[in-house]
């Protein structure tokens, strides 16, 4: 395998976690709820998947179990932030602490062991014979099609081409107006927070079932926070979110290749790349393209709880 193919293969694999979690965060933020619990949700999804496949060795069942646990935690988060309207930043941080702590506590008995069943690569007929992209994309596990094709395009269609999507965006931009137009604001917010949390947990399941096939305490390694940052970078849109996940997968892959090929840089510095890169990627565009600001703007009501009847 040549260098580029190797880089891209790892990029698609590693980027999947970020892409999936970032798309989940897009869903929540588009209806006006910041979910800073992504890091904890990924951890919970990962440990759920590990525990499930060790009891029943089917990666698909593990993935679905993680989605359910994610939706459950999402429902708790939505109960606090949407129904009770508690502070979203605090509840998100709390969710990160709870998810990370709980996953590490449960994970103690699975630590260091290989995951019982993982998603295997499937070679697509004809397409896998294409140069570079064939081995790098069309020979991967089936989830990459969900992450890079079905979800981004499906969600993009839903959000920008349907009435339901327009209502959804209205809830995030101006909940009072949406409410006056008869859109059930609380229901929209609750539903999409749960769906987004399910995707974040799914990203955790993908992490351990397709990318790093073992649980360890630091396996999530800040990917949830990178995903939250990518949403800003992607202008709150699903397709750019998936693409920026891939871009950061590529940056991660550069670090791996550097270590494997013995580049004269300490591995610790190569491991810093995704974090430092994320910071650069959310600061530089704001300064460089002032005109892009409106296009890339956050939903106007992001982070604000909606009170209908407070006087």
């Amino acid at each position: 395998m040549d260098l580029l193919t190797g880089l891209l293969t790892t990029a698609f694999l590693a980027g999947g976690v970020l892409a999936l979690a970032a798309m989940g965060e897009v869903l929540a933020e588009r209806v006006g709820v910041v979910n800073l619990g992504a890091e904890g949700l990924i951890a919970m999804g990962a440990i759920t998947a590990v525990a499930t496949v060790s009891a029943y060795p089917s990666p698909l069942v593990g993935f679905l179990a993680a989605l359910c646990v994610g939706a459950l935690f999402g429902a708790l988060f939505a109960l606090a932030t949407v129904t009770i309207r508690a502070n979203q930043v605090l509840c998100g941080l709390a969710l990160t602490l709870i998810g990370t702590g709980l996953a590490q506590t449960i994970g103690k008995s699975y630590s260091g062991m290989p995951v019982a069943a993982t998603f295997q690569g499937v070679e697509m007929p004809l397409l896998s014979k294409l140069p570079v992209i064939g081995p790098a994309f069309f020979s991967q596990n089936i989830l990459v099609y969900l992450i890079y094709i079905i979800l981004p395009f499906g969600l993009s269609y839903l959000m920008f081409r349907t009435r339901h999507g327009m209502n959804m965006r209205a809830v995030g931009e101006n909940p009072a107006a949406a409410d006056a137009a008869g859109i059930p604001v609380t229901l929209f917010r609750f539903g999409y927070v749960c769906a987004g949390a399910a995707l974040a947990a799914g990203a955790g399941a993908y992490l351990v079932l397709a990318f790093v096939p073992a649980w360890s305490d630091g396996v999530v390694a800040g990917r949830g926070w990178i995903a939250v940052a990518l949403v800003i970078f992607a202008g709150y849109r699903p397709i750019p979110a998936a693409l920026s996940g891939l871009l950061f997968g590529f940056i991660t892959a550069l670090g791996f290749v550097g270590q494997a090929r013995g580049w004269p840089i300490a591995p610790a510095f190569l491991s810093m790349l995704p974090y430092a890169g994320t910071i650069a990627f959310i600061i530089v565009p704001v300064i460089a393209w002032q005109r892009m600001r409106r296009l890339m703007a956050a939903p106007a009501a992001l982070g604000q709880p909606y009170f209908r009847s407070v006087r």
Partner: peptide, 8 residues
């Protein structure tokens, strides 16, 4: 980790 979860 358990303490972290309880703190959360």
């Amino acid at each position: 980790s358990t303490v972290l979860a309880i703190t959360g």
